[in-house]
């Protein structure tokens, strides 16, 4: 199969989840009372809003991830043609990785990975 496989599998996923949700809607019993649809918190009433400002550490990790993920994307084409580009490509990638390693070291020294 060619690229149409993406479409086929996309539709298959929608059929599975949508069909399942529909079947469950038709087959399942329904009964309701006022407390049933409260958020589950081990029996306690929830206090205050849930959607509040969150710890900044998660955001930092996401930013760092972005940097290193883009780096991975840069490394992939090099890895595919490594045997052809040979020594020159190897030296260039060493320089590239050393620069990134310095970046990682900087983030480490700045305490980006401290979690408290």
């Amino acid at each position: 199969m060619g690229a149409e496989a993406i479409l086929v599998f996309f539709i298959a996923g929608i059929v599975l989840v949508g069909g399942g949700a529909l079947a469950s809607k038709l087959l399942s019993p329904k009964s309701t009372n006022k407390d049933k649809w409260e958020p589950y918190e081990s029996g306690m009433k929830t206090i205050g809003p849930t959607w509040v400002q969150f710890k900044v550490g998660y955001f930092l990790i996401a930013i760092l991830f972005l940097i290193f993920d883009v780096e991975t994307i840069f490394l992939v084409p090099w890895a595919v043609v490594m045997k052809k580009v040979g020594l020159v490509g190897f030296v260039e990638i060493v320089i590239f990785i050393v620069i990134l390693g310095l970046g990682l070291l900087y983030a480490y020294k700045k305490g980006a990975f401290k979690w408290e």
């Binding site: 399942g20 087959l27 019993p29 049933k36 649809w37």
Partner: peptide
């Protein structure tokens, strides 16, 4: 499949 779906409003 036969369970009652309970979520949160």
């Amino acid at each position: 499949l036969l369970k009652e779906p309970v979520g949160t409003k």
